[in-house]
Each structure stands twice: as structure tokens, then as C-alpha cells.
Amino acid sequence: MDTALILDVDGTLVDTTYHHAIAWYRAFAEVGVTVPVWRIHRAIGMGGDKLVSAVAGEEVEAAHGDRVRELWKAEADRLMPEVRTFDGAVELLDAAAEQDLPVVLASSGKPDHVDHYLDLLDGRRRAVAWTSSADVSETKPAPNLLDAAWEQAGTERALAVGDSVWDCDAAGGMGIPAVAVRTGGFGVEELTSHGARAVYDDLHQLRQDLPRLVGLATAPSPSGRDTRRSG
């Protein structure tokens, strides 16, 4: 089948959203900046290149951005052993294979974090390709990550699956449909208002609906693959 299933990883397949929120909170605290955890949570899903200014402002980005990102990485490293896959993640990957859907794991995580996730999911065997922050110059909600993932899939059509409004925004920027799971803590109306065609409480529900969802990708928008290929 000439449709790729582009799966977000952090917060969608592996339960990391709140680990990352705590890691960012601690990183900001190290430079003397207090950002409420709820505000950080609302930004999880966008890349670290955007998150600092989004939650703390441009002045903090200018003064401490790179240092905060370094500290976040160190804090996140310490939390990695606690990370687990969501129930249903492996089953979703296997169901995609049964339906001849090439899977690309579209992560903007650090390469070593992505390696850990691949180990948890046996992703090197279950996916045709995967991405990390090393593959893009700009992260979500910019569509670059999905662009890189779709390029690796080599298909005419694609369906994106994520857990945040930033995933939905990135898919919209690519002109491909998106569906979402609530594992990132976003509400149904939030996700649909950002373009999610369907929202599921968990990965088992999504997997059961996968045959129908693939049909969403049968009519890509004019801003889809041709525009993507032209740069």
C-alpha cells in the first residue's frame, strides 16, 4: 500500500510527556528561572529550539536558551530509565505491518533518546525508518520533521499520528491528515481544532480503527507531496 504511517514517538508511543516537563522545569530552575510545570506541559511536543522562548520569553532564550537545553538534556538522561512504552504501542506497529503500511517513527528527540525508544519498541525491526533531531534544522510545529519522515518512506500518501496540537499543526503544514491520541494530555476539542481528523483515548482504539483511517490519506491536499518535493 502506498501510504506511510508517520508516528510521533515521544508522548504517543512512549510515555515521556511528563518526564520531559519535569526535566525542563528543573533545567529552568538551574538558571534561576521559575516556569510553572503546567505551562511547560502545554508546550511539550514542540522542539527544544522553540520551547524556551515559548514558555519563558525571548529574553530568557537570549540569555539562557542554550544552557537550559543542555541542562534539560542532562535531566532527561537521568529520567530515561523510567520511560516505558504505552500499552498498545507494539500492537499498533504490528497491525500496520499486517496491513502493509510502512511505518516511520518521526521523533525530534535527541539521537541517544531515540535509540532508547527504538530498543523499547523493537523499532529497528518494526519500522522502515526513523528520525531524530539530527535530521532537521527546525522542529515542530514546523513541518520539517514530517517532511524528513515522509521522504524516507518514499510513498505517495501519508497519515500522521501524534499526541499534541504541535503534531497536528505540523501535519497541516505538510498537507497530510493527522489523527491524535490523548496520551499527551491535550483535550479532544483542542486537537480537533488544530486539524485532527479523529482523536482516541489510547493506542488500542486507534489500532482498531486503522483500516478506516488509512482511507483518510487517499486524497492528499494540493499542498501535499508535490509541494513538499519542490522544496
Rank of each mutant, 00 (worst) to 15 (best):
V83K: 01
H64F: 13
L71N: 07
D100Y: 09
L93G: 08
A95C: 10
V68P: 07
V103T: 12
D100K: 13
D100V: 02
P111Y: 01
G109W: 01
V103R: 07
H113E: 14
R67L: 13
A96C: 06
S107A: 10
P111R: 00
A76L: 12
R78Y: 03
L105R: 04
S108W: 07
Q99R: 15
L105F: 05
R84N: 05
D112L: 09
A63S: 13
D100Q: 13
D94R: 14
P81A: 00
P111L: 01
S108A: 15
V104F: 08
R78S: 09
S108R: 04
Y117A: 02
A89W: 03
L71Y: 07
F86C: 09
R69Q: 09
E98Q: 14
R84E: 10
A106V: 02
P111M: 01
P111T: 00
E82R: 08
V90D: 08
V90G: 14
E70W: 11
M80Y: 03
A74L: 11
P81E: 01
K110S: 15
G65L: 02
D87L: 13
A97P: 06
A63R: 15
V83N: 02
D112N: 10
D119Q: 02
R69K: 12
E91L: 12
V68R: 06
L71T: 06
G109E: 02
D115T: 08
F86D: 04
G109N: 07
D94Y: 06
V90T: 14
A63F: 04
A97G: 15
A63C: 10
A106M: 06
A96N: 09
E98D: 13
R67Q: 13
A62D: 13
R78H: 07
D77A: 08
L79E: 07
A89N: 04
A96F: 05
A106H: 08
D77V: 15
L71R: 14
D94F: 04
Q99K: 11
A89F: 05
A97F: 04
L101M: 12
H113D: 15
A62T: 11
A62M: 09
L118P: 00
A97R: 15
E91T: 11
V114K: 01
F86Q: 09
R84G: 02
D77H: 10
R78K: 14
A76Y: 15
G109I: 03
E98L: 07
A76S: 15
D119F: 00
V104Q: 11
D87T: 14
H64K: 03
D115F: 02
L71I: 11
A96T: 10
K110I: 12
D115A: 13
V68L: 10
A63T: 09
E75C: 03
E61I: 03
L71S: 07
A63L: 14
H116C: 00
A106R: 05
E70M: 12
E98N: 09
H113R: 10
D119H: 02
D94L: 14
E82Q: 14
V90K: 11
E98T: 10
K73P: 05
L118I: 00
D112R: 12
L118Q: 00
K110H: 15
L79T: 03
R78L: 05
A63K: 13
H113I: 04
A106S: 11
L92I: 06
A74G: 07
V83Y: 01
Y117P: 00
D77E: 15
G109L: 04
V114Q: 03
